[in-house]
Design a protein around this nucleic acid. Structure first.
Lengths: 152, 152
DNA sequence: CTGGATCCCTGCGGATACTG
DNA sequence: CAGTATCCGCAGGGATCCAG
């Protein structure tokens, strides 16, 4: 066993070599809405990936900036080395980030967004913008909800 | 204890009555990038919510359509009643969906997007669109990655 | 410095049985 | 129909030690 458990087989059910499952195993069989129902499962898988708690942050930090592993750890700060490794691997695997290893004495590895990753950037920022714009509104809604619940 | 464990206290760490934690307890202390660093934590919490595996689907299904609980269960199909309840509660709590109870003999409860929820719709669809447009590209990247890994 | 390997706790989320 | 209460498996993810 040369591969770590968390990088192969153990986790990420929807991440396994799905190849191009022909959407037949897909559980979404409802009538087509605005998106094609079959596409939806794929979407969820991709979405699960990019929204897996760290990916978006990594992508955001990598915006037009090449960063080293250690820099990312320090920038994100809340992340552990393990999760950064896993996240980076997933993003690399999906072709969203590129990994460059410099064969120097103290290992130097740099990560950067690929063209594909850069296209995602705009979308994620839209999501971020929305969150920023509406966070107060949401906070108020929560308090209201809590109040209603507590008072009840 | 009148509240079920999964609706209060047991789960959703970032969901607890955060109120408006003044971003001081926030672990993002890095220099401001394109987003204000302090905002980022809030963003992550909101993002964790709307991307929690089911929320996006629910929001999408609720697009300009009022649906009943059972309808949602059947539409999403992969979801359990428990998770739909939890998801719906969270969305309601955040003011993204509205809940209407009709006091009739067979209980009838309808869910609909609020104005706030509707604003999110566009953003989520952008994400979905991106996923749709690039899913093949990603699939190819994965295969390539796998091949490189396997062949190595 | 850049990870890989392990241990282990926690919470997400599914299944099921029970109510009003 | 619309939840509610519980039990429980499993993946997510942190801490730590180890290696090149």
């Amino acid at each position: 066993m040369t591969s770590p458990g968390y990088l192969e087989g153990t986790k990420h059910v929807g991440t396994e070599p799905v190849g191009r499952e022909d959407a037949e195993a897909c559980r979404f069989d409802r009538d087509p809405f605005q998106w094609d129902a079959r596409e939806d499962c794929q979407v969820r898988q991709i979405l699960d990936r990019i929204a897996d708690k760290w990916s978006l942050l990594v992508i955001a930090l990598l915006d037009e900036k090449t960063l080293r592993f250690g820099e990312l750890v320090r920038e994100i700060d809340g992340i552990s080395k393990r999760m950064l490794t896993v996240t980076l691997r997933n993003l690399e695997r999906d072709g969203l980030v590129g990994r460059t290893v410099y064969p120097v004495v103290p290992p130097r590895v740099e990560y950067e967004l690929t063209a594909l990753g850069r296209t995602l950037l705009g979308t994620t920022q839209a999501l971020v913008s929305w969150s920023e714009e509406h966070q107060e509104e949401i906070a108020r809604a929560r308090q209201k909800f809590e109040a209603t619940n507590t008072a009840g």
